Simulated assay, not measured.
Amino acid sequence: MKINKPISPTDGLTRANPSAEYTRFLNEYIELHKTKAFDGRSIRKFIGTITKLIHEHQCRTLLDYGAGKGTLYTDQYHKLTDDIDQPLQAYWKLDEVALYEPARPGYDRLPNRTFDAVICTDVLEHIPESDLGWVIDELFSKANKLLFLNIATFPAMKKFADGTNVHISIFNFLSWLQFIEPIQKQYPYVTVHAYFDEITENGIGKTSGYQLKGRDANNQNSVQTETIAAQSA
């Protein structure tokens, strides 16, 4: 597994010009979305955390980037959790929520505007390493205040038809942080909260959380990384 090396995307790739690998896997995900897979349940354990962050950053609008089927935003939310009593957009008291899912017809057009908060859970590990640069830059470009990430650092249970694991970019949390931090410097007013799902040497699942602080209006504070409260996976 590629967990100890730096993340090295391919130069020159963009949304308009992604890698052939990105296009191939996207077509695979389109087929997988025709099944019951990717219903958006990965947000469940972070509902409380995101609620707190939305309040702290005074967010009124939110983009869920890679929302899957977005079940928690529908009247079927109760099929995934008993922790909320209404769909997420109402529970979070937001003025607007947009769902983007490139593998789902009807939700495959990225909104041409920015949002106070952007959340991206169980997505980046599914993106080819070659395309991680433009995808993460795109996430930052859509956020005005807050970017919330959840990334798995181990193989998934699901595989593509050819046997390839659907987690195609597997790196440890430090590699991810070292990759994300320089990109954040181009978006100094966006604060990042990144939670990494990990498997310990004893085979126990855990989630470690980190914060990459945005700089103040006078650009006086350098971006810092610090461990924050984590939840069990």
Rank of each mutant, 00 (worst) to 15 (best):
Y195G: 06
P102G: 00
L26R: 03
A20M: 11
N144H: 09
Y187L: 01
I3M: 13
H33I: 00
F140N: 01
E181V: 12
R24T: 10
S141Y: 04
S141E: 07
H193V: 08
T164F: 04
A37F: 08
T227E: 15
P9M: 02
K34M: 10
A230T: 14
A16Q: 14
I228T: 14
L177R: 05
K69W: 10
L147T: 06
R44E: 15
F46L: 11
F115V: 04
I199Y: 06
L88D: 12
L124Q: 05
N4W: 05
L63T: 07
V166T: 10
H126S: 06
E138C: 06
T81Q: 08
S8W: 06
R113Y: 08
P6Q: 09
P6N: 08
Q89C: 10
L139C: 01
N112W: 06
F160P: 05
D122L: 07
Q224F: 10
F160S: 04
D137N: 15
S169M: 01
Y22A: 00
S175R: 08
N4E: 14
I180S: 00
Q186W: 10
W176N: 03
G205P: 00
Q186H: 14
Y210F: 15
K158H: 14
T51F: 08
T207R: 11
P6V: 04
G68V: 05
E125M: 12
K52M: 05
Q224N: 08
A16C: 02
G133C: 03
I183S: 10
D216R: 00
L13K: 09
I54N: 10
I168A: 01
D75S: 13
N17M: 03
L13C: 07
L94M: 04
D95V: 03
Q76M: 11
K5S: 14
F140I: 02
L62I: 06
G68Q: 01
Y189T: 10
K34L: 12
G48P: 11
P18I: 03
T61W: 02
K158C: 01
S232W: 12
F179P: 07
V223P: 08
S8K: 15
A152G: 02
G133D: 04
N27R: 02
Q231R: 09
H78W: 10
R24I: 01
Q224C: 10
R215S: 15
N218M: 13
I136M: 15
K185N: 10
P9D: 03
L32C: 05
M157G: 06
A230F: 12
Y91D: 07
C120M: 05
P102S: 01
H193G: 01
E181F: 06
D122G: 14
T200W: 07
T207C: 13
L32K: 11
S222L: 12
C120V: 01
D85K: 13
A16V: 02
E198I: 11
T153P: 01
G106I: 04
A20T: 15
K185G: 03
A16S: 14
N218E: 14
L212Y: 03
G203D: 08
F46Q: 11
L32T: 07
